[in-house]
Amino acid sequence: MMAKRLPGTSRPLRLSRPPAVALVCLGLFLLCCAFVPRFATFGNIENVLRVASILCVVACGQAVVILLGGIEFSFGASAALASVVTVMALPVLGPVGGLATGGASVIAIGAVNGFLVGRLALPPVIVTLGTLMMASGAAAWLVGGLPIDAPPSAAFSWPARGRVLGVPVPILAALLACAALHLMLAHGRIGRLWYHVGANPVAARLAGLDVTRITTLGYAVAGAFCAVGAIILTSRVASGQPALAPNLPFETIAACAIGGLPLSGGRGRVSQVVFGVLTVAMLNNAVVLINLPVAWQLVLLGLAVLAAVGLQKDWAVLARLARRTDR
């Protein structure tokens, strides 16, 4: 899509400045290469990217919700519901139909969240925590609380284990998800509307935007990203797990926060999400390789979120002070 520019405002093509988190990410990468045994091997890097790719797809969805000034806690539970629904639908609809049904259920939950937030102005925390409980209850109820195995088939395991031109499918999916989100945010109409609503919903409403529709669509698109992640996860574990990924919402929110998306909404780029995701994935990987207890993953993730948000606040304060002395 070509954006129309006023005469005289056209810019030469240039890469935009990398986000601050890129430096943190690069620093962490070098640290890990230098001090973590077995980190800088081809197999391990591919492993980190594989884990990061699922997180990245879902974090793209979380980013849309955060842009809208919301927060999405129901991702883990709806991914679990999707995996259960997929495996139950498998004998009837086949691998493709099963995965599609599972994905559709995530999108539906997202749309419901978006409607409740956009139309009734309920706080996103309440809404998504409520649907989290309902989705995880429904997932456990459908299978009686126990995981069910999926009959093995090549088509079913393709999303997690397949390769296209040598590139693993999850990594390809992450690249496509980032590209799609970038197109929507930087060049699409809907992205601009999301920024408007996220920055100031009152002004957006006064300007005549249909905030309900834009918000519902945003949460549904977020659900679609999560659905892709859920399909890959389901295919990887080859079973319907009622407790598939309980930390998924926390990790994606952490990735967005570390990437520098303000949780008040209205600002953010895809590159920030990508570097946030890589940082989280490397932290988790390093904890395992150094042989620390896995609980350190949680502690470090929590501290990283607080540190990232704290540093951004300090930058904002410094910038304000600098402007004040300019005057």
Partner: peptide, 15 residues
């Protein structure tokens, strides 16, 4: 954000 950060850290500490 703050309580999410402490939620993760405290959960890890408890483990």
């Amino acid at each position: 954000v703050a309580t999410l950060g402490t939620l993760l850290a405290v959960k890890g500490l408890a483990l």
